[in-house]
């Protein structure tokens, strides 16, 4: 296994945002069966080490592609963009909306209004799906996107990351 292969190529997937999860899972299983360190038990030390490193590489690749935020971040880097980091800024409009959503969730939680919390959770899930839909339309294939497209994609990935944290928080409130 060539560990310089990009993660999409490693699993024989097209380099785009939209993900065929079934294909990824199948390809991951096939690959792991081939590189699993156990299959190298009888081989020499260097073959064994290579198997361990290959398996680690495949695991990391799988985790990144499977995660909607990390997959986006990885795609940015595939197109020579900096990874998400400290200098990234969310738009004021997005933050304003999010502050309102947080306020609504807080009020519902204080009031013990489970229905309201669940309805907020449903809109949040819809918002996450919407962000992913936009990203799928921005990263369609191997063609180098324009700088504007990349900047737009970055904002959507950041928004998705932010929404994910809010979703964790809502889950906690609903389970509490």
């Amino acid at each position: 296994m060539d560990r310089k292969t990009d993660y999409f190529a490693l699993f024989g997937l097209p380099r785009r945002y939209a993900l065929d999860e079934t294909a990824l899972n199948e390809s991951y299983r096939t690959l792991l069966a081939r590189v699993h360190p156990d299959t190298a038990v009888l081989a020499d030390a260097s073959a064994k080490r290579k198997a361990i490193e290959d398996a680690a590489y495949a695991n990391e690749a799988y985790r990144i592609l499977k995660d909607p935020v990390r997959r986006g971040d990885y795609l940015l880097q595939c197109f020579d963009e900096a990874p998400l980091g400290a200098s990234d800024v969310l738009s004021v409009e997005f933050l304003r909306e999010q502050l309102e959503a947080r306020e609504a969730a807080d009020e519902a939680w204080r009031a013990g209004d489970r229905d309201r919390l669940e309805s907020l959770q449903a809109s949040l899930t819809a918002a996450q799906q919407q962000q992913q839909k936009v990203l799928a339309a921005l990263f369609v294939d191997d063609t180098m996107p324009s700088p504007e497209t990349l900047a737009k994609a970055r904002q959507h990935i950041l928004s998705l990351q932010f929404l994910g944290r809010f979703a964790d928080d809502l889950d906690e409130k609903i389970d509490a």
Binding site: R102, L158, R165
Partner: peptide, 13 residues
């Protein structure tokens, strides 16, 4: 002033 941290979901006004 509105600021936020995408990685932790913090929002501050």
């Amino acid at each position: 002033g509105m600021v936020g941290a995408p990685a932790c979901g913090d929002v501050m006004k």
